[in-house]
Nucleic acid binder design. Structure first.
Length: 265
DNA sequence: AATCCACGCAACCGCCGAATT
DNA sequence: AAATTCGGCGGTTGCGTGGAT
């Protein structure tokens, strides 16, 4: 499909934003609201591409952004969510109010991935950090993750890049010769490295029920504020992850639509 | 004091799916 | 139905900074 490349236009400012540009962008968005990023620069009088404006706003200028000083609780939550979701930074960020996907991605790449590497080889403990990083979910990657000759019918709600975790569970069932499991206990498949809880898939009703195990809650409640009481039954992934519930800081990230479930049939 | 190097972070790039034409 | 546009995401790059030599 033909598509003009963003930011290809010559003469646009690139690189670090100036205070003046920030001011113009904030002022414009305060007056006119977000959106229409493609035409925003022109309307606002910014010599930037729309994507650049969007990125600047979402990651740095938006109200409520927290910068730096990632707490231990936030860090643990990042690690846990990364173990569950892989490199789904926007989803992870949606669980950390005030944090952006870019910041979490950077934090992971600079800090946590190193720590993960250091602890690699120490065996699979109860901590996901001790587990090798899951392969980054790639577009269409779920298909190749399935055994040959296996057809899959993913519930593809929005994101193609998928939850490797759930697929891994499905794979495990395939290996057990169960073509169409009625119930998938993800915890069994994932081992205690991911003590997220058990996942029940009712394929007939395409209903999901989750029994959650305790998440370590921190002093500020980051770890458990969205997940309900331990053992409580949630209504699905959305509640499990707190996606779309309480807005996750209202940044528009996350949501059940971002998740994909796959099963073998 | 000067240079080198490693690290962290901000920003860019390319791709994708959804929405629109 | 096909083409195009838009918004969004994750991976990667490159610059600035601080520490080591």
């Amino acid at each position: 499909m033909g598509r003009k490349p963003c930011c290809a236009k010559e003469g646009l400012n690139r690189g670090a934003w100036t205070a003046m540009e920030d001011e113009i962008l904030v002022s414009y968005i305060n007056d006119h609201g977000e959106g229409k990023w493609g035409s925003l620069p022109k309307r606002a009088g910014l010599n930037r591409c729309g994507k650049s404006c969007r990125l600047r706003w979402l990651n740095y200028l938006r109200p409520g952004i927290k910068r730096g000083n990632i707490s231990d609780d936030e860090e643990e939550l990042i690690v846990r969510l990364h173990g569950l979701l892989g490199n789904r930074w926007s989803l992870i960020a949606g669980r950390l109010p005030g944090r952006t996907d870019n910041e979490i991605k950077n934090y992971w790449n600079t800090t946590l991935s190193k720590r993960n590497q250091q602890s690699h080889g120490a065996g699979c403990s109860n901590h996901p950090q001790a587990k090798p990083l899951p392969p980054a979910p790639q577009a269409g990657g779920e298909a190749q993750a399935l055994p040959e000759g296996t057809s899959s019918s993913p519930i593809r709600t929005k994101a193609l890049r998928c939850t490797t975790t759930v697929l891994a569970a499905a794979e495990g069932f395939h290996e057990q010769g169960r073509a169409a499991p009625e119930h998938v206990a993800a915890e069994d498949q994932l081992g205690d490295c991911l003590s997220i809880g058990s996942i029940d898939l009712d394929l007939e009703g395409i209903e999901l029920g989750f029994m959650m195990s305790p998440w370590s809650g921190g002093a500020d409640g980051v770890g458990d504020q969205h997940f309900g009481a331990p053992g409580a039954e949630a209504d699905g992934l959305e509640e499990l992850l707190g996606l779309g519930v309480a807005g996750g800081g209202g940044d528009g990230h996350g949501g059940l639509g971002d998740l994909e479930l796959a099963w073998l049939c």
